[in-house]
């Protein structure tokens, strides 16, 4: 995976984390909502790439994005 590609995925998941509407339920619910969105709309290779990126350190991912990726 090129750095440009991972940069794009990081941007996308951070954006999802910042925008996904969550009504109550705390951080767990928020992480699950983000993860659910990603499961619903991201192709499998993209999910695998973002998981791999997190395992490699996950630089630039927001806290909520990290929690969501852990659930994928």
């Amino acid at each position: 995976m090129s750095s440009k590609h991972s940069e794009q995925l990081v941007k996308m998941i951070n954006q999802i984390a910042a925008n996904t509407p969550v009504q109550g339920g705390g951080p767990d619910a928020a992480a699950e909502a983000v993860a659910a969105h990603v499961r619903r709309f991201w192709a499998k290779p993209m999910r695998a790439d973002i998981r791999a990126y997190l395992q490699d350190g996950g630089a630039g991912l927001t806290e909520l994005a990290v929690e969501a990726i852990k659930r994928l």
Partner: peptide, 18 residues
């Protein structure tokens, strides 16, 4: 049963070589 690539994802994947 998994979603596929959207157009911008296709472009990114093309540049990435997959």
């Amino acid at each position: 049963n998994e979603p596929g690539l959207r157009i911008p994802n296709m472009f990114d994947a093309a540049i990435d070589g997959s």
